[in-house]
Amino acid sequence: MSSLSYTAPTSVNEAVGILAGAQGLAKILSGGTDLLVQLRSGRTKPDIIVDTKKIPGIMGIREVDGGFVIGAATPCSVIGEHAGLSAAYPGVVEASGLIGSTQVQGRCTLAGNLCNASPAADSVPAMIAARATAIVVGPSGQRAVPVEQIVTGPGRTSLAKGEFILEFHLPKPAPHSSDAYLRFIPRTEMDIAVVGVGVSLTVDAAGVITDARIALGAVAPTQVLVPDGAAAIIGSKLDDAALAKLDAAARAVCNPITDKRGTIDFRIKIAGVLARRAATIAYKRAGG
C-alpha cells in the first residue's frame, strides 16, 4: 500500500532526469542518516527516493592541482581516513568526523549534512571557513556555488527542483594555512552542536595572520560568517587583544534561539569562547 518508490540512477543525467520529472516529492538518498529518521517519524513523506550512490565519481576523494574534490556521497569515515585531506584541511576533516556516532560516520556525507539544512550541521561552518564550493548539477547544467549560499534557512536550500550536489571542491591551501573546527555539546559525543565554529587562517613567516575566515553554526537560522572577527585577527599574532576582539565579533553576529539544547545567552557566550579556542588551534596548525 506504500506509494513510495526507490531508484538508484547510474549517471548524473539519469538522476537529473528522474528528479526533474518526478511527480510529487523526491528525496535524495546519500548516507540516509537524516532521511531515514525523517521517514520513520513521518516528518517527510516522499513519493520517490533517489539513491545517488551509484553515480560515478560521487563517492571518493581526489586531489586535483593541490586542492581536493570530495564526492558528495562519500561517507565521512572515508574523509577521516584521507591523509592528504587531513593534513591540508584538518578543520574540515575534524568537523565531518563529529557528525554522529561511529555508525553514523560510516554512512553520513557532507552533502547530506549540508542539504539537511540544519543550522547546527557540524561540517558546514568548517566548509564555509575553508571556502569550499559545492558543484551543483541539474536540468540547466552544472554550477559552482559557495557552500554558504546553499542553505537559506532551517530545512531550506537554494537548490532548484531537479538539482543536487555532485561534489565539493576545496581550493589548494595557501602556504602556512590551516583550519580548525570546535563545537560545544553537553556530552562528549552523540549530541547536536549547541554552537559550532570553523576558523581558517593563513600566517606569514613572522606568524602574523594575513588571511582569516570564520563561520559560526547553531547561532542563527543559517551558518553565519564573522567578517569582523576575521578583520580583528588579521594583522595580529593572535594576542589576547585580538582574541578579545574576535570573541566580541563572534558574539555580535549571533541571533540564536533558546531551545532544549541551549539558551540564547549561553549560545552567544559560547560562540565567543569557541571562536577564540578554534582560532588558537588553527593558528598553531598554520605554524603561527
Binding site: P186, R187, T188, E189, M190, D191, I192, K260, R261
Partner: peptide
C-alpha cells in the same frame, strides 16, 4: 536519546 542525554 538524542536530547534525553544518558551518559555515553
Amino acid at each position: 536519546f538524542l536530547d534525553y542525554r544518558v551518559p555515553v
